[in-house]
Design a protein around this nucleic acid. Structure first.
Lengths: 120, 120
DNA sequence: CTATTGCATAGCTGTATGACCATATACAAT
DNA sequence: ATTGTATATGGTCATACAGCTATGCAATAG
């Protein structure tokens, strides 16, 4: 007899383990905060230094720096020091298709309900 | 004179506002927990009822139900009641390309460092 | 009817983290 | 060297939320 648990186990063989799923989750988590998305949105227009981002995004410099570090550690952003300043830019080609997929989903749903136009 | 703030403002004109960014962040957040990814991974093999998922994923039934509700509310999953049971299935075509983009990124990075094979 | 099974929900706890303030560090200008 | 400017970091607070236990509720079985 083939139990449900056995079926589950055989399925499991082809699957990522918990640790791998956590790595995937970590990547999604980086994109799961509006401030970080705002940074990405801004950097779509090209490299910016920290102060430019602070002015544009209207939150504290400390917070911007923190989120930039997170994005940098996740290998989403590139970092380049120029004298006194640090310029960040997008260094990961998955960023745009990833955001576009989500925006397309939201636009499709919004078309029946809300006036937003989602597109980073 | 064109100030940095003015430049920032004109960039802002073409951009999503905070509320829209939060909607985008919400979608990413749904994908940012390993248990929910495990559910998605399991449902890739077809519809499952709650008990099957509980057996397969090794967490409490209450927790599975909670995460299923989250995924359903985010319009990621489809829900179908059959008598006593409730079957869930993937109801969102962005799920696989979204996961694949992230897995490709991680595999590329892992190729130089870790032994995982990321693919939901 | 009552019992059982399958799922959902409420309440709780611990942990993670976004945002703030203050401060530290690094480089530049004088 | 001193002062100023740009960025990073440590500490704190408040909030969000995954997972747990207990319970509620719906559908079937007996």
């Amino acid at each position: 007899m083939v139990t449900a648990a056995a079926k589950a186990k055989s399925r499991k063989a082809r699957q990522m383990d918990r640790a791998a799923l956590e790595r995937v989750a970590d990547v999604f988590r980086v994109f799961s905060e509006p401030t970080r998305l705002a940074i990405i949105q801004s950097l779509k227009g090209g490299a910016r230094n920290v102060n430019e981002l602070v002015e544009e995004l209207g939150t504290s410099q400390a917070n911007i720096s923190k989120q930039l570090r997170l994005l940098y550690d996740a290998r989403i952003l590139n970092r380049e020091k120029q004298g006194n300043q640090v310029f960040y830019s997008i260094d990961e080609d998955i960023v745009f298709p990833l955001c576009e997929l989500v925006c397309v989903k939201l636009n499709r749903e919004a078309r029946e309900r809300a006036p937003y136009d989602f597109s980073i």
